[in-house]
Design a protein around this nucleic acid. Sequence first.
RNA 1: GGUACCGUGGCCAAGUGGUAAGGCAAGAGUCUGCAAAACUCUCAUUCGCCAGUUCAAAUCUGGCCGGUACCU
Length: 309
Amino acid sequence: MNPIICIAGPTASGKTALAVELAKEYHGEVVSCDSMQVYRRMNIGTAKPTREEMQGIPHHMLDVAEPWEDFSVSRYCEMAAPIVESILSRGKTAIIAGGTGLYMDSLIRGNAFAPFPSTGVRERLEAQADAEGMEAMLAWLRSVDPEAARRLHLSDRKRILRALEVYLETGETITAHNRRTQALPPRFCPLWLGLDFADRGELYRRIDLRVDEMLRQGLLEEIRELLEGGIPPKCTAMQAIGYKEFVDVLRGDTPLEQAVEAVKKSSRHYAKRQLTWFRRNQSIHWLTRGPGRPEIMESARQILRENDN
RNA sequence: GGUACCGUGGCCAAGUGGUAAGGCAAGAGUCUGCAAAACUCUCAUUCGCCAGUUCAAAUCUGGCCGGUACCU
């Protein structure tokens, strides 16, 4: 039995429930892998598992940051890796479940991240990009890291500036850095499970229903409390789907119905991107949900059995 | 029954004689410190139908069909 199981899949596909079921059956603890469930007091909109849903199974990497903090992949990995190791050292199964592909892959691979600039390089690069235009920035990148320049699109401001930032800060190109860290063996070797639906329309219907359910559970109230608690509406956490849209509703700038539709639409787009991300992971054993399909728990057991050696 | 207006991809919509903008939706994809983010690509051989005028028609003419408004 592989002591690490990763559960990937789009939003609203049932990862949380499957994780708990597997944990109960295989003596496991759940490590959440979700870039928004890390924030405290953001519960309903992030679909964070409730106490009842956890069914007594220990869950990690939930509520580990304040909403005004800037969380990141590197921080996630720094915190989650020791937790996984601790679970294993206690002879238990680590069930890493969540939809944030970058976080999950980075944790498993053991990616090292270039140091975060502390000298205001970022601000200077932003200003320079505004003044000189992205063509100039890309040309600059081409002169120091032609490989990165080749794979980045001119419109991809975020990555072009980050590549330059890493170079200025460390003297090493981001391409060289990534190549070096990827040459290292992966930190963990999990058994991968992926959740998907035979019919995309069914996934989208579930997303719509879940958004309605969140409203019923008091999402608006949750957001109101966050704002009253002094959480800046423009911080990263509040950019989460289902939060940013309703902030406008609470301010009276957007009719509720319009925001609800926007949240559903963004969630569908998000789910699609998650599938794109996970699909290229050749290690994933896909559990397909849908009419005529066996119950996923049984499929999961079978895959676990087949890969048990 | 009469008159007027309208009919462009799944939806919205530009184009009024020169060889089908754009947006949304959808699909595919990229991804190493904001990732629930950011970014890329694809998507009408054809403009309700038929006939005509013209070198050339989504654009002009006629008929038909469908819709809308008003009148009777």
